[in-house]
């Protein structure tokens, strides 16, 4: 019996992360947890990122995402990528890094901007940041 072939529109890492969604879920609520949200379901992409902060750095990340496989994979990848990051790292994070790392096609770049917006939102909510809700 032939195996199901891989859909080559998606790179290997995108396929793995979209199927297994490592990092999906929520960090238990607490004063040391920041959340960043962005997106619009009608436009096909909504993400919620949660980071636990300790010593001024991200020590744990989780995501919830509604969107295409590239979007889910990139949200999952971010929860690993931003571990150890400080607030200025989140403020400076650029969506192109996810595009390059995961081989996201240009048609999906707009979705990655949504992800960048969520990271920026988390930076705004960082404990002690002006306007922080944490």
């Amino acid at each position: 019996m032939a195996a199901v072939s891989d859909d080559l529109r998606y790179g290997a890492e995108v396929r793995r992360r979209a199927r297994e969604a490592p990092g999906a879920g929520e960090v238990p609520a607490g004063p040391d947890v920041v959340t960043g949200r962005a997106g619009n379901a009608e436009q096909g992409a909504v993400v919620s990122l949660q980071f636990r902060i300790s010593g001024g750095r991200v020590v744990e990340g989780r995501f919830r995402a509604f969107g295409c496989p590239h979007f889910i994979a990139a949200a999952s990848w971010l929860t690993d990528r931003l571990r150890g990051s400080a607030r200025p790292d989140l403020e400076a994070w650029d969506w192109r890094e996810a595009a390059d790392s995961l081989g996201v096609p240009p048609a999906k770049f707009g979705r990655l901007l949504t992800l960048q917006d969520a990271v920026r939102d988390a930076a705004r909510n960082w404990p002690g940041a002006a306007g922080s809700t944490v």
Partner: peptide, 12 residues
């Protein structure tokens, strides 16, 4: 409540 491309991708 489910995005179409991801649903199709998941149902390979």
């Amino acid at each position: 409540g489910v995005e179409g491309e991801s649903l199709l991708f998941s149902l390979a």
